[in-house]
Design a protein around this nucleic acid. Sequence first.
DNA 1: CAATAAAATTCTGTATGCAGCATGCTTGCG
DNA 2: CGCAAGCATGCTGCATACAGAATTTTATTG
Lengths: 229, 229
Amino acid sequence: MKPEAANPLTIDLEDRGPIARPSLHEAIVARVRDMIIEGNLPPGSRIHEGNLGIELGVSRTPLREALKFLASEGLLELSPGRGAVVRQFSPKDVRDSLVVLGDLEGLAGRLACEHATDAEIQEVRKLHDRMMDMYANRDRLPYFKLNQNIHTAILRISKNEALADVHGILQARLRRIRYIGNEGPEKWAGAVADHEEIISALEARDSERLSKVLNAHMEKTWERVKNAI
Amino acid sequence: MKPEAANPLTIDLEDRGPIARPSLHEAIVARVRDMIIEGNLPPGSRIHEGNLGIELGVSRTPLREALKFLASEGLLELSPGRGAVVRQFSPKDVRDSLVVLGDLEGLAGRLACEHATDAEIQEVRKLHDRMMDMYANRDRLPYFKLNQNIHTAILRISKNEALADVHGILQARLRRIRYIGNEGPEKWAGAVADHEEIISALEARDSERLSKVLNAHMEKTWERVKNAI
DNA sequence: CAATAAAATTCTGTATGCAGCATGCTTGCG
DNA sequence: CGCAAGCATGCTGCATACAGAATTTTATTG
């Protein structure tokens, strides 16, 4: 018998690719990740396989598979015999992650200057301009998402998949922190200034400058976020 | 009924930690990872859940959980409906990973110079000296393992867990490549020379020099390995 | 009333069964 | 003889059942 779904899990079909049938545990991974980021599953809380399974409308088997996957990403910790716990990130964890992210984005910037096509750089420019519109309107959430998109795009056009992979892992760990770390107007302006310089260095293909500003951008991110933890 | 084990999976008990009971899927993860590194599961081959389960003496459920975990590490690829396939790394994948590893180790070197205690540096020196003994005896396998230990130790004494995490993931992906990439004597000598400079820069806490030599060391590793793929 | 021990309940870990899809083979037709 | 459609087999994906560990509740004693 299929499990009763209080809130059935809908599978996202807008996947690109030829006929890639979406798998259930993959959908669960995405869903649980979002629940962690949005705070539905607060850090430190134990995950109850039975209840969560019912809530998502799936049985424990694919749910457990998804939990193992997320544990490998570092969003969960597994204590044998006691199930999965949402990982707590200490301020040091966050700081350390941002240091690494800054380093990785610096590298990505250098590689992007070297390997990106003009068209790709133009696409990033478009994202940037749209983000600036959102800033002009003080539209926080769309701004936030475009911001993330820009950083991800720089990773993409660096044409280094391994780099994008590890960046994505650390990025996912911090998404919740950034999500709650809504800074005040003066700091927001600083971040916007950074982004102006990022796009200008990228368009000039000035790898040293881009690398430096991306790295420094992370340092400032820490300054913005550290009091919110 | 417990499944018949042609070659029962023994659980490694030498785990550190207070009373951390080893969990089965954890043991399976380690075991399958080793099978991939050692080539028992060649790249590109599909993993047959039934057979492998019988071979390891476990049922499909924990095995599948382990496969999801390894997929998240990037050692396997999951094609829905077709199970897990051992990931093939293209030469570009390897090169890209080494570029990132070089960058990460460079960062780790800087941080280690800053944060490591004298005692920790001395421990790395000991590893280095033991490795040199192995080199003198042309003892390849112990040399290989000590080599890995030294690099891991530098990551550890950099006191940045996020850094160690992502380094570990990329390192695991390349372990198989390094395992088969047994270079000739002249290149081996070059690697040894690098290591002499690494330890000397670390003892001098010369972060710039250490960072540079670690980064360059990876570049040379590529030169050594690229023809073996 | 507090503390401890024992029992009951709940939850995790593992095995197994079943349904649906993928794959390879066979057979029929051009 | 070649190609394609249909069929048979086998494997994956998911659900469920069961055993053992962990936790909570309760009872008993100091």
